[in-house]
Nucleic acid binder design. Sequence first.
RNA 1: GAGGGUGUAGCUCAGUUAGGUAGAGCAACGGCCUUUUAAGCCGUGGGUCCUGGGUUCGAUCCCCAGCACCCUCACCA
Length: 498
Amino acid sequence: MEPLDELRKQRLDKLNKILEINQTAYAYTFAQTDFAQDIIEQFDTRGEGFHVAVSGRLMSIRRMGKASFGHIMDKTGRIQIYLKQDKTGESAYTLFKLLDIGDFIGICGNVFRTKTGEITIVCESIELLAKTLRPLPVVKEKIEDDEKIIYDQFSDKELRYRQRYVDLIVNPDVKNVFIARSRIISVMRRYLENQGFIEVETPVLQSIYGGAFARPFITHHNALDVDLYLRIADELYLKRLIVGGFDGVFEIAKDFRNEGMDRDHNPEFTMMELYVAYQDYQYMMDLVEDMIRSICQEVFNNTKISYQGQILDFAKPWTRIGFFESIKMETGEDCYGKDEKELRKIIDKLKIEIDPSASKANMLDTIFSEFVEPKLFHPTFICDYPVELSPLAKKHRKKAGLVERFEGYAGGKELCNAFSELNDPIDQRERFENQAALRAEGDEEAMVIDEDYLRALEYGMPPTAGLGIGVDRLVMLLTNASSIRDVILFPHMRPEKS
RNA sequence: GAGGGUGUAGCUCAGUUAGGUAGAGCAACGGCCUUUUAAGCCGUGGGUCCUGGGUUCGAUCCCCAGCACCCUCACCA
């Protein structure tokens, strides 16, 4: 017998014994009237002896013959419980002796403070609500000089991600991250609704994918016998809705990109995309600043956020700097308007290595990532990108060769991407054709021509500002997480061998 | 994709200095205990030492290959 099976068998044996004295080990309801944290907080005002009914998991047990202590954990935290046989009666106490760490119980009793000072519920009755069959990792903690010392923390990252349910039970901070995530998205949604924008849903399964540079996941529709792609972005569908007369739409949803995985990338991730008619990218910068400030204020009650040891201040306006200006500032080189030969000279001078066949866009992108990106810790908008990097953005109204586009960076991460949307169908067709040419040369991430999208543009799209925010990265930043896996409940993992 | 690291009991980890089938704490099980708190006291059980090959009389340890996870870099809008 496997050792784990032995532990399970012991629990199954207890389950059978429980069933002999109790009708069931899996109750239907429990009339919960109180929560651990409230009881502790209200102890001083309510005084000793008030009656409570709490339910949750049994997280520790200290048995001493006919009396026992333990802790029960509900959604608010842990509270100590105390049972003594002459209070609960013999059969209830016998039931308690058959319980394990992890079991769900409901108890009724009165609150008091033990002589060592811990607020505790002395049980009058106890009900088993659900028996566990697997042992939970036992995490112990001690408070010393207001410092929490944790012993035997459940820390195996692989197990934590694969069995997130266990991680959530025994590592309370993990739960807090996901509560924060939920609130961030909720505040974001409410903020956008308050601005008058409408939340919509667009297809996940698409016969032509677009809106970003990425390789897609491919799936198959049996009844139609066609291959379909999982969307890599919502962009082109949302802009069709602007054509259709919605003046402000947004979608918070999963995108899928068939690429590598690392601390900033999960194959499926959450994106918020927003499109607003009659506005441009300047408007979007203001909106991003204001929205993120609101999120910080409402969720954390603070616009200063600590990320990886540094402070980000979202109360202040973000730094706004041009793409080429930022390069000039960090390297001293002015790359604007330079042709491929001149750029190559600059690259040699800067002593970085780039594939000799690299395109102009590619070289600029590399210089930027090498010299500017690592410096972008404080919230910054990088504005006005080369047109080659942005086939869906509108040409800059003043600067030749650029588009009206910005990316928002904070904490060294790219957080959002926005532009004045290209609404000239002829220009858009040319851009798509350039992409098709790149694709023909083997660039698998180049965009595919979307004829229906061009048809929509030919019906006329008003001036429009568009924005995409990587929700997972925003959550990472605001919860001080260093890996995207820490803000996704079930991050993608290689299949477990059976 | 490249380099590095890790993989030993349910959990957290030692260890085999130099190859002889392994230990601790917690959890579990048994006994004693009616105010204990990271662990009450005493005792017991529990291991495919990631997998597969090789070397060897003998491998958890050495060698080769593989798998999973972590870290760094590359890729990645």
